[in-house]
């Protein structure tokens, strides 16, 4: 696949990501899986616009069926399948759409963060680390015990009609630092990704777009348990990247690293290794 065009590699990776991270409920999922297998195994099916129109329809139906609960990357997947349907045989069009999708996606994400007071003041990450079970081991690595996490959840999810009370214990410095770092890092990195993908051709910042996107995926999805989102971004990244072997290898390698992020519970292993919690 390294010899394939960026558009072909992007389409192939998109079929792989639909297999690794199938979407929808029982009405949608079997059809998406069947089409992804068909795309990979049947006469280079990933090059067929018809395949991507069908997948756009199915992923769009999934968003409608889940309304209004679909995650943001569910919408991005629909747009990306549409972009592939329109551009899988027109690499320049696909590259332009991929660049715009990444740029706009990150611009909107960064704008949401800049404009959200409880994001800027670290409250978002503090409460996320405490409440979201997927970050539980990370919270323990920052210095909390599991008992404290349970206490914090009980407090943060108490009956909202109760009068205001004080937080039940003092949060460790490690958690504050982790929240501050996460806030600043995400704001800066996502703003930079948006800028580098949206600046006009010829700008020096534009040369940074691939390394920045790869760093974003390698850092973010080591912690955030939504590797499916990362795979979509990487497939779009490949589509718009220059036709260089080194870049394609970097995108492919990152795609593979994300598979292991999804399968290896590294934060839990660290907690066990250091006997924390």
């Amino acid at each position: 696949m390294l010899e394939a065009s960026p558009a072909a590699l992007a389409a192939w990776l998109s079929c792989v990501l639909l297999l690794l991270s199938p979407v929808g409920d029982w009405r949608i999922r079997p059809l998406v899986l069947a089409l992804a297998v068909l795309g990979l195994l049947w006469r280079e099916g990933w090059r067929s616009p018809a395949l991507w129109w069908a997948l756009a329809l199915l992923t769009g139906a999934r968003v409608l069926l889940d309304w209004p609960l679909a995650d943001n990357h569910a919408y991005l997947l629909v747009y990306w399948c549409l972009a592939l349907a329109l551009g899988v045989r027109e690499p320049a069009l696909l590259a332009r759409n991929a660049r715009l999708l990444i740029g706009l996606c990150f611009a909107l994400a960064a704008w949401q963060k800049w404009s959200s007071a409880d994001y800027r003041n670290d409250v978002f990450f503090l409460t996320t680390f405490l409440l979201d079970e997927r970050f539980e081991n990370l919270a323990v690595l920052s210095g909390l015990s599991y008992e404290q996490i349970d206490l914090a959840r009980e407090y943060l999810e108490a009956d909202p009609r109760l009068p205001s009370r004080a937080f039940p214990f003092e949060l460790p410095l490690g958690l504050w630092l982790m929240a501050r770092f996460s806030t600043v890092w995400n704001l800066a990195e996502q703003s930079l990704v948006a800028l580098s993908f949206l600046v006009p051709p010829g700008s020096r910042l534009r040369c940074l777009r691939d390394p920045i996107l790869l760093v974003f995926c390698l850092c973010t999805y080591a912690v955030a348990p939504v590797v499916g989102f990362g795979w979509i971004l990487l497939a779009m990244g490949v589509a718009q990247a220059e036709a260089s072997h080194r870049l394609r290898k970097a995108y492919l390698a990152t795609f593979i690293v994300l598979i292991f992020y999804g399968e290896v519970p590294w934060s839990g292993l660290l907690v066990d290794l250091f006997n924390l919690g």
């Binding site: 003041n121 409250v123 503090l126 409460t127 407090y155 943060l156 108490a158 909202p160 205001s164 009370r165």
Partner: peptide, 17 residues
């Protein structure tokens, strides 16, 4: 429908309908 608001620096909460 309620949301929980947490205060900066303390995480003390109060509910808002």
């Amino acid at each position: 429908v309620w949301r929980i608001l947490a205060a900066e620096n303390t995480l003390n909460t109060h509910g808002e309908m």
